[in-house]
Structures are given as C-alpha cells and as structure tokens.
Amino acid sequence: MRREAKSRRLGPFHAPDPVQTEPDTARQAGAGDRGGMEEKSRWHRFRRSEAFAGLTLISPTALYALLLLVAPLATILVYSFLTDGDTVTRIVWEFTFENYITTWTQPIYRAVMMRSLSVSMMVTAVTVILAFPVAYYVSFHVAPGRKALWLFLITIPFWTSYLIRVFLWKVILGYNGVINSGLTSLGLIDEPLTFILYNVNSIVLTLAHAYAPFAILPIFVALEKIDRSLLEAGQDLGESRLMTFWRVTLPLAMPGVVAAVLIVLIPTIGDYVTPQLIGGGKIPMIANLIQSQMLDQDNRPLGSALAVSAMLIVTVVALAFVLLNARFLRVKK
C-alpha cells in the first residue's frame, strides 16, 4: 500500500510543462544506441523528474535563505578568525585565534556567557514547568470544540508587540511602578521596593512571560497525539491515575517538552531587549555584548567570535538536552 501511495506522488504531473511535448530521444533511439544519446537522455530524464521539479520550485526561497542567512553567517564565521584593525581599516586579513581566546578566557565575557546561559535555563525551566499543566488541561479537560478558542487566547499575547510587553514589566516592577505604587497606596510599604527591578530575577520573570505560548503549543500538540485508549489501558491494567500519568502520559509527551525547551532556550540566550530595558543595561547578556563589540567598540572580529560562540553554546546545550532526553526515554521503555 505504501508503495502504491508513493507511486501516486511520483507522477510526472508536475514536471515542467514544455518538455512534455518534446519527443523522448531515449525511447526512440532504442536499446542499441549508446554514447551521446545516453548522456542526453539522462539530462532529459532528470529534467522531467520529480527531483528537478521540486528543486526548481524551491530554488527562489532557498536562494534567498542562502544569500541572506547562510552568506552572512559564513561572513561572521570568517570575521571571527581575522584581526581587528583601526577604525579606518576595521579588519585586517590576518588569521588568528585571538578573538576566541579572549572570548573564552576574559572573565567579563565568560561571566556574561554564563549569565546568558543560566538566565535562559532558568527561564526555560520556569516556562516549561508552568506551561505543562495548562497544555495538559486544554488537551485533556477542554471540550474539543473549545480547544481552538483556548489556543487562540493563549497565542494572542505572543502576537502583541514584544517591545511593549517587555516595557510593561518595567512599568509593573519599576521604582514608581504598578507594584510599588499599588503597595504604597494600600499602606503596605512606606518606601518603594528596589529589589524587584534591574536584576536577574526580573529578567527571568519578563522572559518567562514573553515565551509562555511557545512552551504551551508544542506540549499541547504532543499531548493531543496521545491515543486516549492507551491511558484507559493503563488504568485498566491496574495503574493509578498518577502512575498512568507518570508511566504513559509523560513519556509520550516528552517530544513536545523537548520541542518546548528548545524553542524557549534558543531565543532567550540571545535576547537583547529584556536586559536592555529590564536590566537597565547594567546586566548585559550575550546579545548586548555582541552588539556593543560589533558597533560601539567597532571590534567586528571579536563581536563575530562572540556570536559564533553563542551559537556554539546554543547548539551544544540543545544537543545535550536532546541526547539526555533520548536516554531518559530509552530507560523508561
């Protein structure tokens, strides 16, 4: 059956139009004819093939991504191994590891990278743990007809200006902010609390709020895919609800949790706005450092090395998490 289904997709229906009216040289030449005909027919056949049609169709989008994403990323990779010049020359074409040595040994840079990593990990943990019950509720306890509405309500805040949402947390947490002015007018405090803004915790809180929908959706999708009869089977076989959740639901939801972790972790490591607004620019994360090296300090090679290092950290953490989870799942089985 699968073969036949595949055969349906492989039809020449979407092959480029004009070639269909050309005579097929291979077929007319017959089996005895070789050499040039063979070559020509291979090209001819490729032009009629599904692969050619697909590649042709995707080429504008792929080219765009190559030119505007891959080429720039390759550029900063190259920059990161070059030497910084003065403001006029900017970059000297001399190969060096100096930028990476600076990035990984200088205490300031190491501190910022560690902070970025720990902040994003905290954000991820908070977001995913808080999001799981919501996804579980929508998937298991909301009537099918109302699920779309819940998802819609959950996603709306994500689509409203990120900048304004971040700024609103500053309004809430600020010296004269909503919390302080609210508590003061209620007579609960005499002086505004100063420990709630401009620190790592407020950054974590703001980011956790900003990325909440990102965590809910993948978990929800994974939970939706779980065959409900499996859970009934679990209970039928004498497991308690809690054990069923632990032994059946959770392992099956893990792919969604992994997706949620990655989708929150990766962009939060590189967040720029929140440290700037909520941290008051005094608690920079890696993105702020990259920006200041690239533009303010005009040290493009060092900025590039920082950017490449950031991407490396993201990749390593993401891979480590995926592998860890794969092991966890295997042990579970």
Partner: peptide, 19 residues
C-alpha cells in the same frame, strides 16, 4: 535552512546581515 530563522536568536540574524 529556510526554517532556521525560527530558532536563531534575532540579534545574530540582524548582526550578521548588518556586517
């Protein structure tokens, strides 16, 4: 490749393009 910007920090997209 085409979907990569979904998971790439925007600062890196912006900075590399700017460079």
């Amino acid at each position: 490749l085409i979907m990569l910007p979904l998971v790439l920090p925007e600062v890196i997209v912006a900075m590399s393009l700017l460079m």
